[in-house]
Amino acid sequence: MHLKSSTAFSIELLLLLLAFILSLLSGPSGPIGGQGYTADIIWDLRAPRAFLAVLVGGALALAGVIMQAIFRNPLVDPYILGTSSGSALFAAMVAPSPLEPFFAFIGGISATMAVYAIAWRERIETLLLVGLAVGTLLSALLSLLLFVRLSAFSSMLFWLFGGLSLATWQKSFFLVVVLVISVLLVFPFAMELDSLLLGEEKSQHLGVDVRKLRFFMLLVACMITSFSVSVAGIIGFVGLMVPHMCRRIVGPKHRVLVPFSVLAGGVFLLLADVAARMLLIPNELPIGIITSLCGAPFFIYLVWRQRNVKH
């Protein structure tokens, strides 16, 4: 039984607000009233960081929702399909440069299309394996790039670790635009995405041009992913976990699932970012470590459960 969407959204918005406040209060210079804290710290550092966490989390969750619908499988996300690694590699190749988001997009789309072209007619396991292989290959190339271009070593580390510690208002503004446009692009196709769950033939009967829809939606998912990678680096498993949990709470209808997942992604990444900056204070942990620590076991659990359902 799913929650009534008004109840679910109310609870979610409350959680988002609480997580946001928690994020504003957490930092090495202490919560409000703590030692050394000033209003500037909140405004210049914590607030843009909190906003960026909400936006990157929302973006990755949205990409995950789309990909899971297209491939009719809850095991895919932009990290598993190699989109994130492709984006990071291409952005790192030109870094530092204002063209980073553009190159991230080229890299993300190439990686995803390669995986899609190789494996889209195969079983889902093949798709996952190809995606992981391509992702691993691209990460290896990124490491190779680090070795070869040692002078640019340190500026490329950012892409390997990712993180929100360098958040600025400009980055947040950039991602707000991306996220709003993406949601507006996806929302009109909510019904079509729902129909994909019935299977290709049935949705074809309902008058949906499945191939076109798949291609267009995948393009949108790649765009959101690569732009969020270009501002925050590789952050894995958000797009995997969040939509899956949200489907449990509000059901599979995309009209509700899309906005609900976007907000939930925001809550999740806010909390992950608080952990990243507070666990080893004043050292910053890469946020990708936190999300992978949660996400990888979750992935294994999903695989295990799918198997048990089948047998």
Binding site: P28, I41, R46, P282, N283, E284
Partner: peptide
């Protein structure tokens, strides 16, 4: 006072100082 690692120092600690 420590401000974190040289790869990813805490901007906040730096600004506060």
């Amino acid at each position: 006072k420590k401000v974190g690692t040289y790869i990813s120092p805490s901007l906040e600690m730096i600004v506060v100082l």
